[in-house]
């Protein structure tokens, strides 16, 4: 149903964003590059045994290029990045790009699953609260929103581990997939590939690993979605076109979903874009908590090891995800809001 004018608009949004995306990524690169070099902690000192000589330190510094000035190091690194070379990890001695790309799919699957959960939970709560506004049900939704908003994701993670990993062990609390399984996968997108290969046994194992970390990440976002969507639905329900629809013979459910929802969802969509980037940020702690082998978990190891090239690579990838998410939100906005077309 994409009309011609809509495709043109979407293309214009993408092209318009490319320049700002490049500038944003460059800015992020500069900041992270400088910051991790001026804060205390030296990767070389971490690698050498106690009692290493000054000459040993100087030799290793020269090996990793750390004896040059920061601007010089940056230019060398950026030259590599432009050619697709993000350098070599100091702690694992593997190419940074391979490491990051190996872990990125796990984090993407976790975040997207969490986002889907958040949208479903938040959407259902908002619609329920709107349908039964002014009753105790709406009060219950408000209370649930308050709790969801005030407890951070990692605390939910701890609670879930305690409840469903220890007291009632229903879910796996550690890792991405059971280690004993024989994996036929060729990509790192395990969930996606298990569906394509119709291996629902593996899919279920992945899901039972992913469910608790994803839910922990999803709850705060679900509460935000629920609160904002319910608020804008409530305002929309008083608008003239919604009242007019009631006179046409539509019942409450149809009026909410058919008339109000599409218009009320727009402000929420913008917020989901912003909050989704926070959710991805939250994966750093949550992946650690559930020993989930994703990018966030690797980021913590990289920081502990002062693995400068790896930190840089991970941060750049996170920044890239953030900018792409914002781009997608802008495009969705254009699809849902006809007033933005023909502009």
């Amino acid at each position: 149903m994409l009309s011609g004018s809509l495709s043109v608009l979407l293309l214009r949004i993408v092209l318009g964003r490319l320049a700002t995306m490049a500038i944003t990524l460059f800015g992020v690169a500069v900041i992270v590059f400088v910051v991790i070099r001026v804060v205390p902690g030296n990767p070389v000192a971490m690698m050498l045994p106690p009692g290493a000589t000054e000459a040993d330190i100087a030799r290793l510094n020269a090996l990793y290029g750390l004896d040059k000035s920061i601007p010089e190091q940056f230019v060398i690194w950026l030259g590599g990045v432009v050619q697709g070379d993000f350098g070599t990890s100091i702690s694992t001695r593997q190419p940074v790009l391979d490491l990051v790309l190996g872990r990125l799919p796990a984090t993407l699957e976790l975040s997207i699953f969490a986002l889907v959960l958040a949208v479903i939970i938040g959407g259902v709560m908002a619609l329920t609260g709107t349908r039964f506004r002014g009753t105790r049900t709406e009060g219950a939704v408000d209370v649930a929103n308050g709790v969801g908003l005030s407890v951070p994701d990692f605390l939910w993670g701890l609670v879930f581990i305690l409840l469903f990993g220890v007291l009632w062990p229903i879910f796996h609390i550690s890792g991405r997939i059971s280690p004993a399984l024989d994996l036929p996968f060729v990509t790192q997108f395990y969930v996606f590939e298990s569906i394509v290969r119709l291996r629902f046994d593996l899919w279920w194992d992945l899901l039972t690993h992913m469910f608790m970390p994803a839910l922990a990440l999803a709850i705060p976002l679900a509460a935000i979605i629920s609160q904002l969507l319910k608020q804008s639905l409530k305002e929309t329900m008083h608008l003239d076109y919604v009242v007019l629809a009631r006179t046409k013979g539509y019942g409450e459910n149809r009026v909410i979903v058919g008339e109000a929802l599409r218009n009320a969802v727009l402000p929420t969509l913008t917020l989901i874009g912003v909050q989704f980037t926070f959710l991805i940020g939250g994966t750093v702690i949550i992946e650690r908590l559930f020993s989930y082998e994703g990018l966030g978990n690797m980021a913590i190891d990289a920081v502990i090891n002062r693995d400068l090239p790896l930190i840089q690579g991970i941060v750049i990838v996170f920044a890239l995800i953030f900018t792409v998410v914002n781009l997608i939100v802008d495009m969705l906005y254009a699809v849902l809001n006809p007033r933005l077309r023909h502009a």
Binding site: D240, A245, P338
Partner: peptide
């Protein structure tokens, strides 16, 4: 037939 035609049609 409502009062305000600017708000009585669903914008989307």
């Amino acid at each position: 037939i409502p009062q305000d035609p600017l708000t009585a049609l669903n914008p989307s």
